[in-house]
Amino acid sequence: MKNLDEIIGDIEGRLDEKDEVRELAIKSSRTIARLSGSAIQGMHRGEDVAPILRDAREEIQKLKSLLDGHPDLFHGGFVENAMQEASESFLVHAILEADRLPSPKELGVTDTAYLLGLGDSVGELRRFALEDMRRGDVLGASSFLEKMERILDALMRFDYPTGIVALRRKQDIARGLIEKTRGELAVAARSQELAERLDAVRGKL
Rank of each mutant, 00 (worst) to 15 (best):
L115R: 11
L155W: 12
L155P: 08
M148E: 06
S142A: 15
A174G: 01
K105I: 06
V138A: 08
L130F: 07
R175P: 02
Q171W: 07
L145M: 11
R134M: 06
R168G: 00
F144L: 13
R127A: 03
D172K: 00
G163M: 05
L116Q: 14
M156I: 12
F128T: 10
E106L: 02
A129D: 07
A154Q: 08
G117F: 00
P161R: 04
R168A: 02
L145Y: 08
R169Q: 09
A166F: 06
R157E: 09
D120W: 03
E97S: 10
P104I: 04
D132C: 11
R100P: 13
A113N: 11
L115G: 06
R168M: 01
D99R: 15
A154E: 08
E131V: 15
P161T: 08
D137H: 09
K170V: 01
R169H: 13
L101R: 01
G123T: 02
I151F: 07
G163F: 04
A113M: 11
V165P: 05
L125D: 05
V138N: 10
G140E: 05
L118R: 02
L152N: 07
P161Q: 07
P104K: 02
S142D: 15
R135F: 15
L155I: 06
A166W: 05
G108N: 09
S142F: 10
A154C: 06
G119Y: 01
R168T: 03
V122K: 00
F144P: 04
A174T: 05
D172T: 00
K105F: 08
A166Q: 07
G108C: 13
L130E: 14
A154P: 03
R126E: 09
G140D: 04
Y160S: 15
A141R: 06
M148K: 03
A166C: 02
T112P: 11
I164H: 13
D120K: 10
G123E: 00
S143F: 15
K105M: 10
G140K: 10
F158R: 03
G123N: 03
S142P: 11
A166P: 10
R127G: 03
L130Y: 12
I164A: 12
A129L: 04
M156Q: 14
G136H: 01
